[in-house]
Amino acid sequence: MNPQKEEIIMIKTTTWKHNFSNYDNLDHINANGHQHLEIFQPFESKKIRLQLNNLYGETPLVIDSLEIYTNSKKKVSVTKDGKKSFAVESRLVEWSDWIDFNLPADSYLSVDIVSPTKAIHTLGLTISNDLIRTENSDPKETKYFFGISEIQVKTEHAHKRIALFGDSLTNQGNYAAPLSIDLEKEFHCVTANYGISGNRLLHPGHSTSQWSTSFGEAGFTRFDHMIAEYQPNIVIFMEGVNDLLHPGTGAPINELPTVNALVKAVHALKKKCKKHGITFVPMTITPAYGNINGGVFAWSEEKEKIRLAVNHELLKMPHIIDIADFVSNDDKLKPEFDYGDHVHLSNEGGKQVAKFVEEQLIRKRMV
């Protein structure tokens, strides 16, 4: 008799995930009722499903149609509960049905959404066009997108999961997106972007800024949600600059943290990771000298002293990546890394940072 063929057990794998936030000050995102996205997918698969996100919506997100396709241009309808038209109720995150779909490896999945819902505030944000492409391809403009916050496929093998956790320097993708693509293509890892623009480690969104609601809950507490939800093997952590920038420029000045408070918080995150067998990779806080926030100078000598002192302590931690030293000179962002506001990374600068971080991960034998 021929030996019985072993049944292949397929593993549910997240191939793309992007943190959404509450942009309640934006009302024009779906002005034309249609959205086109292209999202990089590293693995071949025959089964796929999409996460449908209306977490901050006050009304249902109505989907008239949701179609996916790749280079073949053969469109396949994505359904929920067997229906091609459906609604995602307010305050919910739901999953589509599993869809039979021939997904090639290293391809961009096109996603077309037709929706009559105009006031959509549950949004993702990107500047980089590397990992997720919107209809606006301008590399310097902020792009918002709705509806889809995660993609899962079924694969034969498990893959190392890497979470990129931080603020806008992570969320915007100028370093995170090219790093993710390299890690996925070269090392067969999967990544998730847990950055939130304006996020602080120690405080939730608490500001006179029109963007305050989108700043989200404090990084210290949402870190727990990330661990439970994504169960990463590695966390690359890059946060702290907003804890220094925001006080006095919308947030109360008495929320400016001490060196000890920031350092203790980062060490506490490391302990949380150790408890779950996760490798914690912190990065030093990059400079923000010259930044203007809300019409006032956001940086000061006191803030710079705190940043340098915090970095001095962080450099004692295992797995630390000294990103601040790589991108700065005389405690300022080098011009080639500066997006123009003296805080954020430029498109080309972000790619250099991605290569630097990747080299550090290789050198530390994490990938």
Rank of each mutant, 00 (worst) to 15 (best):
N193P: 02
G195L: 05
I196F: 07
I196Y: 07
I196C: 08
S197P: 05
S197T: 11
N199P: 06
R200G: 04
L202M: 00
L202W: 02
L202G: 02
H203Y: 15
P204N: 05
G205V: 07
H206Q: 07
S207Q: 03
S207G: 01
S207C: 06
T208P: 11
T208H: 08
T208E: 11
Q210M: 09
W211C: 10
S212G: 09
S212W: 05
T213N: 11
F215W: 15
G216A: 03
G216V: 11
A218K: 15
G219P: 03
F220R: 15
T221P: 08
R222M: 05
R222Q: 06
R222W: 02
H225E: 15
I227F: 01
E229Q: 01
P232Y: 01
I234F: 06
I234K: 08
V235A: 01
V235P: 01
I236H: 04
F237P: 00
F237R: 01
M238T: 10
E239S: 12
E239D: 12
V241R: 14
N242Y: 13
L244V: 06
L244C: 03
H246M: 13
P247D: 11
T249F: 09
T249W: 10
G250S: 01
I253Y: 10
I253M: 10
N254S: 11
E255T: 14
L256I: 12
V259C: 05
N260T: 12
N260C: 03
A261H: 11
L262G: 00
K264C: 13
A265F: 03
A265G: 09
A265N: 10
V266T: 10
H267W: 12
A268R: 12
L269A: 05
K270C: 11
K270Y: 09
K271H: 14
K271G: 07
K274T: 07
K275L: 05
H276E: 06
H276W: 01
T279R: 01
F280T: 03
M283F: 00
M283P: 00
T284E: 08
T284R: 00
T286N: 12
T286A: 09
P287A: 12
Y289T: 12
